[in-house]
């Protein structure tokens, strides 16, 4: 087991290197730092001095990958590639355009993101699986059909509509919770209820349909027929046999998401004014803060790779037949 984990972690290294090289190419080779400076300064204020100043402030005034002017090892280290890309492996993301340390900012913003994403994820999983089991229990009846129609209709509605509509109805018409904002401690609950509920409702259509397909596939298996032939009630068949056996395909899609919950949700956070990583990213995109976007891309990939590893490990917990070598 331990050997497997170590080997998987080693596999992750080339992928992370690939991501790193890719972002480096995207941000510094597709456009030169001069281009970025010109874009951000605006056409009117572009002078050679302003560009040099902009680059110096961000440390973009070095050569890309090879600094011939430096001495010894600094030929490699005193470059944009080393200072901006390689140092990300050490958790050093540099500074944002407003001068703050990105790593510290990310640390502070993870908690609010998680406070929304985790309940949404757990509640959404629970609601969707229950709903899907209900549809399976009443399969091939009018209720099943109506449920599927509802799912398709719900997944055809834009996520923006759920957020805008929910904010309007709950906060503006009924005045139940504040429209947006955040505070620490227990007070946060009243700000979190609405985004969580909206997040659950918005995701219900697609996930219920997906779970229903998985359950339907399981229910036509031989072991289910055996269980029924033994005279087990349908309730027991569904919960004890079908649900357990369907866990493997469900885990495949679900566990990988868990680490990325730290990243928060772009839309929800920016609509509800939650100071998490999602709104941080959106603000950075709008302000064209390249350093922040680059850091988020890197962190997102790291979390995703962790998710893949967790998925593999979760198989061994869910299915005793799976042995990781």
């Amino acid at each position: 087991m331990l050997a497997y984990i170590i080997r998987r972690l080693l596999y992750a290294i080339p992928i992370l290197v690939g991501v790193n090289l890719f972002t480096f190419a995207l941000f510094f080779v597709v456009n030169t730092p001069d281009d970025m400076a010109r874009m951000q300064l605006g056409v009117k204020r572009v002078t050679p001095e302003a560009i040099e100043k902009w680059k110096a402030e961000r440390g973009y005034d070095k050569p890309l990958v090879w600094n011939g002017a430096a001495a010894g090892g600094a030929k490699l280290t005193d470059t944009i590639f080393f200072s901006k890309s390689v140092r990300m492996f050490a958790g050093d993301f540099g500074r944002a355009d407003d001068g703050r340390d990105i790593a510290r900012e990310i640390g502070a913003r993870m908690l609010p993101s998680l406070a929304i994403a985790l309940p949404t994820f757990v509640l959404g999983l629970f609601v969707a699986i229950s709903f899907a089991l209900l549809l399976i229990f009443f399969r091939a009846t009018a209720l099943d059909f109506a449920g599927v129609v509802l799912c398709v209709a719900m997944m055809s509605i834009s996520g923006l509509f759920y957020i805008i509509g929910g904010q309007w109805l709950v906060s503006k018409v009924w005045h139940l919770v504040p429209i947006s904002g955040y505070s620490g401690g227990l007070d946060a609950a009243k700000f979190l209820v609405l985004p969580v509920v909206i997040g659950v409702i918005g995701g219900i259509g697609a996930s219920t349909r997906w779970y229903r397909t998985i359950f339907l596939e399981e229910i036509s298996r031989d072991y289910v027929r055996t269980a029924r032939a033994k005279g087990l009630p349908e309730r027991v068949v569904l919960f004890r046999h079908v649900l357990r056996n369907a866990l493997i395909p469900i885990l495949t899609g679900v566990v990988v998401v868990i680490p990325t919950l730290f990243m928060g949700s772009l839309l929800t956070e920016s609509f509800f004014g939650i100071p998490g990583l999602g709104s941080y990213t959106i603000d950075a995109i709008n302000a064209q803060d390249f350093a922040v976007v680059r850091s988020m891309v890197f962190i997102g990939s790291v979390l995703y790779i962790v998710g893949l590893l967790l998925t593999d490990l979760s198989y061994t917990l869910a299915d005793p037949r799976v042995r990781l070598q």
Binding site: L26, F27, M39, V297
Partner: peptide, 16 residues
């Protein structure tokens, strides 16, 4: 392994 929205955002920023 790069989250979709982030990859799109980064690429679109560069395209701009």
């Amino acid at each position: 392994s790069i989250p979709g929205v982030l990859l799109i955002a980064a690429a679109v920023l560069m395209m701009q």
